[in-house]
């Protein structure tokens, strides 16, 4: 069973969202997602300042197995990206909820957060997919 921290929110495309307060969230991919992908070898992230609507392609994760799009789980503007992933993409595998984070986003519509899955909802979804 994969690790699904209860203090995070999730979307069905396997990204996690951490509320940092003040309308800012941190985004990454879940333990379940990194497990499906296998060893991550490249992560392509957007530029700081870029704006995304919910569901837009935010980046790409390339693993030994496949290339996989990462979608913006919420609308907003990129405040920061995790530059460590350029030299150490394996952080996505070893610490998906910590050092393997992808981007920090300033939300353009904080009410969208209400549509996200909680840990139980996401666990159910993973269960159904397996």
């Amino acid at each position: 069973m994969s690790d699904i921290p209860s203090d995070l929110k999730y979307v069905a495309s396997h990204e996690w969202i951490r509320d940092e307060g003040d309308g800012v969230v941190t985004i990454g991919i879940t333990d379940h997602a990194q497990d499906l992908l296998g060893d991550v070898v490249f992560v392509e992230l957007p530029e700081v300042g870029a704006e995304f609507a919910t569901g837009d392609d935010l980046g790409v994760v390339e693993s030994v197995k496949a290339a996989s799009d990462v979608y913006a789980p919420l609308s907003g503007e990129i405040l920061a990206i995790n530059g460590d992933l350029e030299d150490a993409p394996e952080l996505v595998n070893s610490d998906p909820y910590g050092d393997g984070w992808f981007v920090r986003l300033r939300l353009s519509d904080t009410t969208e957060v209400d549509d996200l899955l909680d840990a139980d909802g996401y666990a159910e979804l993973c269960e159904a997919e397996s």
């Binding site: 296998g38 060893d39 070898v41 030994v64 394996e90 595998n93």
Partner: peptide, 9 residues
């Protein structure tokens, strides 16, 4: 077996 933890390792 596809891997035992990490294919790259």
């Amino acid at each position: 077996p596809i891997h035992y933890g990490s294919q790259v390792e």
